[in-house]
Structure formats: C-alpha cells, structure tokens
Simulated scan of single mutants.
Amino acid sequence: VVPGILLMTIGSSVIGAAVSVATDMNEGIIARFRTMAIHRPSVLIGHVTGSVLQSVAGVVLVGAVALAIGFRPTHATAPEWLAALGLIVLFATALTWIAVGMGLASPNAEAAGNSAMPLILLPLISSAFTPLHSMPGWFQPVAQYQPFTPAIETLRGLLLNTPIGNNGWLTIAWSLALTTLGYRWSTTTFNRDPK
C-alpha cells in the first residue's frame, strides 16, 4: 500500500501549484512580472520547481512515517533507492506541469483546486490498494492504462523487490508525455492570456 500512498501524496501536493498559479494570475503579480525584463516562462518554472520540492518533501515525510509504523523495504539497494527517488521527482514534475496548466486555465483559485482533484482521485482507481486481477473485468483496462498504475508498480518493484516488467518504461513514457503536454499547455496559455 505504501508505494500507492507515496504517489497519492504527490497528487495531493501538486494541487497547491494549481491554486497558487491561479491566485497569482488573478491578483496582479503576473501583470507586474510581464512588465519586467525576465524570461517569461521563469515564473512558471519557479512554480514547478517549488511544487516539486514540496512534493518530494511530502513524500519523504510520508515515507518516514511509513518506516516508523512498519514498512520495511529490506531488499532495496542504494541504486534502487536512487531510482525510486528519481521516479518520484520525474512523476512529480509531470503532475506539477499538468497542475500548472489547470491553474492557468481556471478563472480563480477555487476552480483550480477543483479541476486538479483528479490528480488525487486517479490513484484510487489504480493498483495502489487493489491488485488489478481482482478488479471487475470491465474496470481492469481503466486501472491498468493510466499513469499511476505503472508508476506504483515500478516503485513497488524498486522498494519491495517485486517484478517491474515494462512498468518502468511506461512510467518514464507517461512522465515525459505529461511533462511535455503540461509544459506546452502552460506556456501557451500563459503567453496568450493577459489576465
């Protein structure tokens, strides 16, 4: 269960990025930045960097609590721990860019928080808490072909020595695709929308 909760922590952390971007867009600070001689995407990159750091800190805190209450990844080697950390940073970056896009597309902070809610709910319909094979047949493809399931299975494999299969590559592909999509959506919206 712990790998699912760790990635759920990322999903809940990045909602703050959506809310803070929407708040900045509506409170005039972005209008001020637009008049300054700064690289335009630097405002968004700052939000993403801050959110990824918050997400990683949240995962470390939740992971420490999990270790304190009995989670024992005894077979994980140092390279596997580093790979798990890299996966967490990559996945957090992908979700943060999507959240920033949601924040830019939202009319206010409340709407941004609501629109980013699927980032918390998607882990609930993944393999985080229930094995895929025990789900109803019609629901298994929904759970299997979404970004959280391969990320959770990869994290499980790295920390608990379970088979990863092609989930590692799927996680990287999902993360890069979501990062690219979120970055393009965010920068296009930011450059077009003079709120």
Rank of each mutant, 00 (worst) to 15 (best):
V1P: 12
G4I: 11
T9C: 04
T9V: 07
G11S: 01
G16C: 03
A17D: 03
V19P: 01
V19C: 03
S20W: 05
M25Q: 14
R32Q: 12
R32E: 09
R34F: 08
T35C: 14
M36Q: 15
H39N: 14
R40E: 04
V43T: 06
I45Y: 06
G46F: 09
G46R: 10
H47Y: 13
G50K: 01
G50S: 03
L53R: 01
Q54N: 14
Q54G: 13
V56W: 09
V59K: 06
V65M: 06
L67P: 00
L67E: 00
F71L: 07
F71Q: 04
P73I: 06
T74I: 15
H75W: 12
H75C: 12
A76H: 00
P79K: 02
E80K: 08
W81V: 15
G86L: 12
V89A: 05
M102T: 06
A105F: 04
A105K: 02
S106G: 11
E110I: 13
A111C: 01
A111S: 00
G113A: 04
G113M: 02
S115L: 10
A116H: 10
L119K: 02
L121I: 04
L121S: 00
L122G: 05
P123R: 06
I125M: 08
A128S: 10
F129N: 04
L132E: 04
S134W: 15
M135K: 05
G137N: 06
W138E: 10
F139L: 15
F139N: 03
P141Q: 11
A143F: 12
A143H: 10
Q146K: 05
P147E: 09
T149A: 11
P150T: 12
P150E: 04
P150S: 05
I152P: 02
I152H: 06
E153D: 12
T154N: 05
R156M: 13
L158N: 11
T162C: 00
T162L: 11
I164S: 01
I164H: 02
N167G: 08
L170S: 11
T171C: 05
T171N: 07
A173I: 14
A173R: 06
T180S: 15
S186H: 10
S186L: 12
T187Y: 10
T187F: 08
T188C: 00
T188W: 14
T189Q: 07
N191M: 08
D193E: 11
D193K: 12
P194D: 14
